[in-house]
Amino acid sequence: MSSTMGRIYGVGLGPGAQDLLSVRADRLVRDTRHIAYFRKAGRPGQARGIVADMLRNDAVELAMEYPVTTEIPLDDPRYNARMSVFYADCTDRLLAIARAGEDVVVLCEGDPFFYGSFMHLHSRLLGHAPVEVVPGITGMAGAWHATDMPFTWGDDVLTVVMATLPEEELVRRIRDTDALVVMKIGRHLAKLRRAVMAAGRTNAAWLVEHAAMPGQRVTRLAQADQVTPYFSILLIHGQGRRP
């Protein structure tokens, strides 16, 4: 790689509150001219919204718009085909900036290496440009702190699952762990309710919406009627060993 190449940063922004950014993330967002971020077509982008008033006056923005979100099932071959082309195109656009000798920050909600879109760019960028990842507080950490209760004790086993799993698999995972985080709830809330009930843990389950963001809401699953599709996490707190 040329010594004159710019560096590509995957910067974790944390769960949504600007004052939960790390010092390094704050500095990079404020000082770097090229700012890239993912968004759904026609939307401003959640990641950009977190840092909107932090960007330089001369910031050059690169909005990477998903070609598909929920319109095609994840197990449909067309989904992977379209997303693969999309990530390859994003990689090329970032490399063009780096090859011009400029640094670029890719804004990442939560932590870049925790179920984030940046991971798909990182694997494609390695070996072609200098890449640095700045960790961020995960959304699930923001969620369990929103409940104002410790989440894991002593030897508790923590399991993180996606609500997109088949119902019988959800039941098994929920039943067989101490502390639980369920992400990607959205349209799967009814299925998740049934799975939590079948595992006998409804009374221990909490829903957290928009953790660490304006509009944060913490509700027991048994009392929740509907949730915001994207920014919702289900939690079951561990109750393990303690002095």
Rank of each mutant, 00 (worst) to 15 (best):
R173G: 07
I97P: 06
W144G: 00
P166S: 11
D178A: 13
P150A: 04
V105P: 02
I174S: 06
C90F: 02
D178H: 15
S84Q: 15
L180Y: 03
H122T: 01
A129P: 03
T91M: 02
T152W: 07
G127V: 03
G142R: 11
T177F: 11
A129M: 07
L125Y: 05
G139H: 05
V131D: 02
E169H: 14
V85T: 12
T138Q: 04
L158G: 09
L95T: 08
G142N: 10
T159M: 13
E167I: 05
L107I: 04
L165I: 06
A88V: 05
E109A: 10
I174W: 08
A81F: 14
A163Y: 02
M83F: 09
L158M: 15
L125N: 06
V131G: 01
V104P: 04
F113W: 12
R124W: 00
V161M: 13
M183S: 05
G154C: 05
M140Q: 03
L121Q: 03
T138V: 01
T147W: 00
D103A: 06
M149T: 14
A143S: 11
A129R: 05
L170N: 04
W144H: 08
G101R: 07
P166M: 11
A141W: 08
F114G: 07
R93V: 00
R99N: 14
P112T: 10
M140R: 03
S117N: 08
V106E: 01
C90D: 00
S84W: 05
L158H: 06
A143W: 00
F113K: 10
D103F: 04
G110P: 11
D103N: 12
E102N: 13
G127Y: 04
H120M: 06
T177G: 07
P150I: 01
L180H: 02
T164W: 00
A143G: 03
I174G: 06
S117T: 12
G127I: 03
E168K: 03
F114S: 08
R99Y: 08
H120F: 13
T177H: 09
A98E: 07
L95G: 07
A129I: 03
T147H: 01
V134Y: 00
A141Y: 08
T159K: 13
R172A: 14
D155H: 07
I174C: 11
T164G: 02
E167F: 01
P150G: 02
D156H: 12
D103H: 09
Y87K: 02
E109Q: 10
V157G: 12
D156M: 12
D176F: 11
A100L: 10
C108P: 03
G127L: 04
I137K: 08
E169R: 15
V104I: 15
E167A: 10
A146L: 00
A81M: 13
G110K: 09
I97R: 04
S84D: 15
R172Y: 10
L158R: 02
G110W: 07
H128Y: 05
V157R: 15
